[in-house]
Simulated assay, not measured.
Amino acid sequence: MLAHVPERNQSASLRRALAVLEHVREHSGLSLTQLAEAVGLPKSTVLRLAAPLVEARLLDRDRRTGAYRLGHGTLRLGQSYLATLDLRAVAAEESHRLMTEVRDTRHTIVDPERLRADLAHTMRRGYAVDDRENEPEVRCVAAPIFNHHDAVAAAISVSGLTSRITAARVRELGPLVAGAAVRISRKLGSQCQ
């Protein structure tokens, strides 16, 4: 039968265990004595707090030296966290803030119908063109890079002043940039054409 532990004590223990974990994250390779001194707790308390962290593979203790370091369970937690991130959701607020601070140029496509038509054209040709939409004197040609799930993972681009990247030059650069993106994508395991 488990003894009832007051909630306040459980919270304090959890906070101390998290402090131990955080300290090991920042200062890997500490012995029990060093870790206890660093977090200001008795060695017996640190040992008691570290035990479930070691069991959960959040901490690892070297059998030879006794030094603590992060365990592979922290990697699994981190990967699980990253897998739940949605780039659009994470970037939406900052993108909107940046847009309002920067104010786009007179060339920026703001009409929804025109934007949809431009996106359809971009998909057909395999590359996108920023024609002075972000900076009045800059053109950019970009293409998506796909990962092994055939999901967009990154992009590659060429940018320059409009005096160097003319409209005619854009038509030359577009296929070159798109080709580089396809080759990179294939190296990442994509089946893209």
Rank of each mutant, 00 (worst) to 15 (best):
V5K: 03
L2Q: 03
I156C: 05
A153P: 01
S185G: 11
V138A: 15
I109M: 12
L49E: 12
R114A: 15
S28P: 11
S163Q: 11
A51D: 09
V46N: 00
L161P: 11
T108Y: 09
A92D: 12
E26L: 15
S13G: 12
T74M: 15
A83T: 10
S31Q: 04
R61G: 03
D150L: 05
Q79A: 14
H148N: 11
E101I: 05
L77G: 13
V129R: 02
P136T: 13
S44N: 01
L87V: 01
A38W: 02
G174C: 08
D150Y: 00
H72Q: 11
D130G: 12
E37Y: 02
T100M: 08
L32C: 02
A168S: 12
L21D: 12
S13M: 04
A151C: 01
L18K: 08
K187V: 07
I145R: 03
P42M: 01
T162G: 13
Q10G: 00
V90K: 04
R169L: 10
E7H: 09
V90W: 02
E172G: 06
V39E: 14
L2V: 02
V158M: 10
N9L: 04
A168T: 14
L41P: 07
V20R: 10
A83M: 06
Q34W: 00
A51E: 12
C192N: 10
R15C: 11
G174N: 06
V5G: 00
A151R: 09
T84C: 05
V152R: 03
Q10I: 11
E55N: 04
A83Q: 13
D131F: 02
D111Y: 04
R64E: 15
E93Y: 07
R15L: 15
G78T: 13
V170M: 07
S11K: 15
E26A: 14
E135N: 11
R15W: 05
D130M: 08
P175C: 14
E113W: 02
R63P: 14
A143V: 05
H96Y: 04
H121Q: 08
L82R: 11
R106K: 13
D86E: 10
H107D: 14
L75F: 03
A180Y: 05
A17K: 08
G174Y: 05
G78W: 07
A12M: 10
D131A: 15
Y68F: 15
R63Q: 13
R88F: 00
L188S: 07
M1R: 02
D130P: 06
V182M: 10
D130R: 03
A151Y: 00
L59H: 03
L2R: 08
R57V: 04
L2I: 01
V158P: 06
D62W: 03
E137M: 08
V129G: 08
A151L: 06
L115S: 08
S44A: 05
L21F: 05
A56F: 01
K187I: 01
A51K: 13
T122N: 01
R186F: 01
A92H: 06
G73L: 10
P42G: 02
L77M: 15
E22L: 14
E37Q: 14
L173E: 10
I109D: 10
N134H: 13
G29M: 09
V170L: 09
Y127T: 05
L59V: 12
R132K: 13
L2W: 00
L49H: 02
T84Y: 00
R116P: 03
P136S: 14
A167R: 14
D86A: 01
V102A: 09
A51V: 03
S44K: 01
